[in-house]
């Protein structure tokens, strides 16, 4: 009852967002709209740090659709000078910047019910969720896939941490615009396609396999 009441008070964009989840999901790798995204942040603390920018691009039927991309830069109150060097995003740049509320609203509008993909997805999802919490909104409802975990489903991959640079090297992906949200999202999108293609060569890949967070025994 309380939940229902609160639901009524959600802003329109969130209501629209929720509606998209009422539509039956295709549950096939080919038909699903995947959104590969990356956030650049002021730091690694999901509570204290803030999002500097979000970059995202969609994959449908194994094709990266440049027209279906998203790129936004956020105005900063919290500003951590240490990370500026990595991202090159200064507090007052020339790029048009949006408040956190607006940026998240646009991002949610863009996402709809897509399946999210990110490298070390847990962190990026947590950063978005933290922003949603500050807006008095619930967490993201989208399913998500971690390319780091997906990679470990390949034959003979052990260990726990695979950074994006190492995987770019292994999969022969040129590192353009590394450490910009859009650049990393694009690289991650290629990485996702390459891992899936390699997985498919090794065995039959089912839609549900993508979401198993356990190790490679998860795949039959």
């Amino acid at each position: 009852m309380w939940n229902w009441f609160k639901h009524k008070n959600y802003p329109d964009f969130w209501k629209e967002y929720l509606k998209t989840f009422k539509i039956k999901q295709p549950k096939s790798i080919e038909k699903t709209r995947f959104i590969v995204f990356d956030t650049e942040t002021t730091g690694l603390d999901t509570v204290k740090d803030r999002i500097l920018s979000i970059g995202a691009i969609a994959i449908t039927n194994g094709i990266i659709d440049v027209a279906d991309n998203f790129e936004i830069y956020l105005k900063q109150d919290e500003f951590n000078t240490d990370t500026v060097e990595i991202h090159g995003i200064l507090k007052e740049g020339n790029i048009e910047k949006f408040s956190e509320e607006k940026a998240i609203e646009y991002f949610i509008n863009y996402l709809q019910n897509a399946v999210l993909i990110a490298h070390h997805a847990a962190f990026d999802v947590k950063m978005i969720n933290a922003a949603l919490t500050r807006m008095n909104l619930p967490k993201l409802k989208n399913k998500s896939i971690d390319t780091g975990i997906l990679y470990k489903k390949l034959d003979g991959k052990t260990g726990n941490h695979f950074n994006l640079d190492a995987l770019c090297k292994e999969f022969n992906i040129p590192k353009h615009d590394r450490h910009t949200a859009s650049g990393d999202a694009f690289i991650t999108a290629l990485l996702f396609l390459k891992i899936i293609s390699k997985l498919k060569k090794e065995r039959t890949v089912y839609y549900s396999d993508l979401f198993r967070t356990t190790n490679n025994k998860g795949l039959i």
Partner: peptide, 11 residues
């Protein structure tokens, strides 16, 4: 053209 490119990966 660039903004409407579709990127295809082929093994």
């Amino acid at each position: 053209i660039a903004a409407n490119v579709k990127v295809v990966y082929v093994e």
